[in-house]
Design a protein around this nucleic acid. Structure first.
Lengths: 186, 186
DNA sequence: ACCCAAATACTCGGATCCGAGCGATCGGAG
DNA sequence: CTCCGATCGCTCGGATCCGAGTATTTGGGT
């Protein structure tokens, strides 16, 4: 089990049994799709994998009207344990991840000083917008649920702000010449 | 073309034609494998994709001794253009990404206040170690190449520091009760 | 009464990812 | 000279990912 979406599924089933379509709907409704990429295709794969591991199990398959059957899944005892173990592990151990921006920054040189400054400025602008949006959503959410349930938004905001700070610093360094531009493949 | 490893390949070929195995070796030698996940399997897929797009082309296939043939690839004119366009786009537009930690934080509640504090403390510790390591590597690198070529390490360090800051703040908030723990599925 | 948009619920297959493995060759210790 | 481990360079196939498609049904507007 690699896919973090699996964790979201376990998290939902901690509350009550559900069928896959309902899981997707609930995740989106709660805005959890900001933390997990929830695509239908993957979801069904993930559910199958969780069954294979014995962490969830089919409870019943019901048919409402003449729509496709719904298979309702529930947690097993093992699944309950694995869920917290999973969360614990991901919190404890930083994973080596490869954000696209990190890759792109490695080749900042290719843009030339002016190109780099322009692109970085635009990024900062977009980041500011997304921070604004997240903040607003967070405020709204806080009116309805305890802070603990939306604390991940605070994390996302903080990270975005740190990135903005770094980007602006680099822009300043390029403009002041503190970040020299050796001649390089253009 | 989604895979950022493709960008790394183009970046290398800006300097001179190479065969896949040499690309992997060079990337690792230069420590670029901190920005790109470089696995052999993916590399050959990526190279094939770049050929399909017409961004690189086979230049020759040579055989040294009786070892497997090496196919040497070089950039096309199109590839040259696409490289900078690619970098530019990734710098300008923040991508929605889904770091595992963000997912895990969404379920921090499942650990209980004490469990959460313990896990977060360990994370902070590990992050501090990795910052230390990055800093050391960066110093060493600066002695040999211009800052521009290792500026992505500065970014990584900055982000890690921001994360440490956030983690420590949350720990404090939990301990002081500023982050309340509604009773919840355990 | 009728039509169309949205919702319901899932399947399918192509694209991608990636580690294990493979067959060969080279360098150096004895 | 000969054996062994490291290196060379790549292939293969399973696992995963995921968007587009399918087929029905409900609901609201006219």
């Amino acid at each position: 089990m690699k896919n973090a979406l699996g964790m979201a599924v376990l998290g939902l089933l901690m509350e009550s049994p559900l069928h896959p379509h309902a899981m997707a709907a609930t995740l989106r409704e709660r805005g959890m799709d900001r933390a997990f990429k929830v695509t239908t295709g993957s979801l069904y794969d993930v559910v199958r994998a969780l069954v294979r591991e014995g962490w969830i199990e089919a409870r019943e398959t019901v048919r409402v009207g003449a729509r496709p059957e719904r298979t309702v899944y529930g947690l097993t005892a093992l699944g309950r344990e694995e869920f917290t173990a999973w969360v614990d592990r991901l919190v404890r151990e930083p994973q080596a991840e490869y954000p696209k921006f990190l890759s792109a920054v490695s080749y900042l040189g290719a843009l030339g000083p002016d190109g780099a400054v322009a692109a970085l400025r635009e990024r900062a602008e977009r980041l500011r917008a997304s921070v604004e949006e997240m903040r607003a959503g967070h405020q709204e959410a806080l009116a309805q649920v305890p802070r603990l349930f939306v604390v991940e938004v605070e994390y996302a905001v903080r990270m975005a702000e740190a990135e903005i700070g770094w980007v602006e610093e680099i822009v300043a360094d390029v403009e002041s010449g503190r970040l020299a531009w050796p001649e390089v493949a253009e």
